[in-house]
Simulated scan of single mutants.
Amino acid sequence: MRRLVLSLLLLLGACSPVWLLNATVPFGAMRAETGIAYGPLARQKLDIYRPATQTGPAPMVVFFYGGNWRTGERGHYRFIASVLTRRGVVVVIPDYREYPEAAFPGFVEDGAAATAWAAAHAAEYGADPRAIYLAGHSAGAHIALMLALNPAYLARAGYDRGRLAGAIGLAGPYDFVPAEYPDVQPVFAPAADQRQTQPVTFADAGAPRMLLATGTGDTTVMPRNTRSLAAAVTAAGGQVQARYYPEVAHAGILMAITPLFRRRAPVLADVMAFIGR
């Protein structure tokens, strides 16, 4: 059945995997406010999604999308908001400056500014300021975990890292050498010390609790990134849960969140259990 649905979507002219994922989820159960500025620049905007019906303050997830720090738009990830709002979560999806407009640490600084804005306005959108989670996929997971592990970024944006309820990384690159990847090297070239670009460098006991998940079939961002960061955080005395989904590929970990592919891996169940704690 899943193959049939995908074939029909492709015949209709869908060329983007993200378009396909958006086509598989309903959007009627949420309220959206889009294009909200969290800074003065064109890419410093975010969308906020709320459950259609809500009783009491909800947890908030600030989700950073991937795209090799070069591509991506917040509107393409409405499927994330649809799935989470149906489970009572307020979802914030920011854009951030991408290369070549900005290199490291510009996109991390944008992530910090978006997080600080979301926290300051959480109550206005029905969210609990004490239950704010950072999350991301791929390059977005790198941003989320840099913010969770290096408190300086959020502090400069006016937010205390200690107020975060948790961080969720899906198939993130946390421990790699940028110079070894020609397409990534210029993105991180401004950093005099390349170790300062890696979340694993900042593993410490003061970080918020973490859920790190990846697929064993991921050949884009190798699972060793998750293993390395989980081991470093554990060694430092931090709280981390690591999940490895058999044979799931890089995009597959996001696909498994949607209803059509949910049987592939319990990604959504693990995320909601983590937030529920």
Score class of each variant (00 low, 15 high):
126 G>I: 06
55 T>I: 09
163 R>T: 06
101 E>I: 12
250 H>T: 07
64 F>W: 11
41 L>W: 09
251 A>P: 00
140 G>L: 03
202 F>M: 09
4 L>T: 11
123 A>N: 01
89 V>K: 15
199 P>G: 08
127 A>P: 08
155 A>V: 00
123 A>Y: 05
53 T>H: 14
65 Y>Q: 09
238 G>K: 11
104 F>A: 14
67 G>Y: 09
146 M>S: 11
71 T>S: 15
32 A>V: 14
122 A>V: 07
172 G>P: 12
7 S>V: 07
174 Y>K: 05
111 G>N: 10
31 R>M: 03
257 I>F: 02
151 P>C: 00
188 F>P: 12
259 P>W: 05
173 P>C: 10
103 A>G: 13
82 S>C: 15
270 D>N: 02
117 W>L: 04
134 L>V: 04
175 D>R: 14
150 N>R: 08
183 D>G: 14
83 V>L: 08
259 P>L: 03
277 R>S: 13
144 A>I: 01
22 N>F: 02
44 Q>V: 12
135 A>Y: 01
214 T>A: 10
154 L>G: 01
260 L>R: 10
56 G>A: 12
235 A>M: 07
89 V>D: 12
12 L>M: 09
147 L>R: 01
28 G>D: 11
111 G>L: 10
68 N>F: 15
179 A>M: 02
212 L>V: 06
110 D>H: 10
44 Q>K: 03
227 R>K: 09
175 D>L: 12
266 P>A: 05
131 A>E: 06
134 L>T: 02
214 T>I: 05
209 R>S: 07
26 P>T: 10
66 G>M: 05
265 A>D: 00
141 A>E: 00
138 S>C: 01
207 A>F: 06
193 D>L: 01
222 M>E: 12
250 H>S: 07
128 D>K: 02
236 A>Q: 11
196 Q>I: 00
42 A>L: 13
273 A>G: 13
91 V>L: 13
127 A>E: 08
222 M>C: 03
40 P>H: 05
102 A>R: 14
232 A>D: 05
119 A>C: 07
100 P>M: 12
187 V>N: 04
3 R>F: 14
